[in-house]
Design a protein around this nucleic acid. Structure first.
Lengths: 203, 203
DNA sequence: GTCTATACCATGATAGAC
DNA sequence: GTCTATCATGGTATAGAC
């Protein structure tokens, strides 16, 4: 059945995120799906094949998410805020397991795994979508730089938040990113003194 | 011999960084040191014990690095620039394997490993040292926020650079961080138009 | 302190019955 | 399509000779 295949991929998707690719065994996935180990090879010829399926699923879900954000806001700035807010929406899993895309890429990079390019393509989807939003905001010249900047800051926030299990740091970073965005869009506050204008939240 | 113990830890340090903790086996370390597997347990009672040794070594090296930066620059701003520049100094390994501290913390967080706190303490060393520099620059109110901001951005830069194997992105982020620092210190340029004042590099 | 030999287990993967 | 049984490999860890 196709639904068995889908169930395997979904379970693997969750486990790869929670435990990492290498630390997730067939036995783990089998237990999660309620299937015997031997039966796996009817659906996937290897563990790497499951990884390919998981990445394909994540790319599909990412595409749907971006389409949803595009549909929810006509305003590019609102769309970008939707991106920033995934850090808040996924706060708890991020504190425990980091960013699903970033942590997988880090693991695959170390393993010199050929699926790294596929996994990094999820970053590219966000990058391209964000760049399009900045372009729509009249920042054609540095739209890609701004997109990468946002990606990098969200990655750093996720890494440190999970390393320290620090929820309030994550919340501050979200706020800081929103202020940065407002700043970028020309909605900058009146010049203020140093004390009232911390670089960390508005620069 | 104590030098054997040190050789094991140094080899493990390198391999844990290049391949990750889980993906490094005793056989790998043994081959790197030129020792038989069985002999390991004379020096370490388990793989986790080697990890503890590696983290202790990294904490020691980090302390020495911070002391060196403090000695090289009397100016706190120069010291902070030393921190930013590790991204340039370690450019090649970062492109291949990410940040040693960040990638280890990500792996240990997923494994729910009890050594995570120890590994994250290396972040704390950088954080405290950076905070002290910002305090010396008269930013006592938000010194810790600024320190965490710098840490987060360097983490994000390392993660994306390794995911994309993108050297020029890493170089741009280094430049952007330097501009951000100058901006923070009040050395901000004259107000400019949007096109000539990209948020990504100066905000 | 170093070695060989080995126990023991988890893993990825296969074969074949139902 | 699912199962049980099995294999081969590689991993951590131990025992004991030198």
């Amino acid at each position: 059945m196709n639904s068995t295949r889908a169930a395997i991929i979904e379970a693997a998707d969750r486990l790869f995120y929670q435990r990492g690719y290498r630390d997730t065994s067939f036995a783990d996935i089998a237990a999660a799906v309620g299937l015997s180990r031997g039966n796996f090879y009817h659906h996937f010829k290897s563990k790497d094949a499951i990884l390919d399926g998981v990445i394909a699923l994540r790319r599909q879900k990412t595409g749907e998410l971006l389409a949803q954000w595009s549909a929810e806001s006509a305003d590019p700035a609102g769309r970008i805020r939707s991106f920033i807010h995934i850090l808040a929406v996924n706060r708890d899993p991020i504190l425990e397991h980091g960013c699903p895309v970033g942590s997988l890429c880090v693991e695959l990079a170390k393993a010199d795994h050929e699926a790294l390019a596929d996994a990094a393509a999820i970053f590219t989807m966000f990058r391209d979508w964000l760049r399009a939003q900045f372009e729509a905001l009249g920042r054609a010249d540095d739209a890609d730089e701004l997109a990468m900047h946002l990606l990098a800051r969200s990655q750093g926030a996720a890494t440190l938040a999970s390393a320290f299990h620090d929820r309030s740091f994550l919340d501050r970073e979200i706020e800081s990113l929103e202020t940065w965005l407002a700043h970028c869009l020309g909605d900058r506050p009146e010049p203020q003194t140093q004390g009232a204008h911390p670089c960390s939240s508005s620069c």
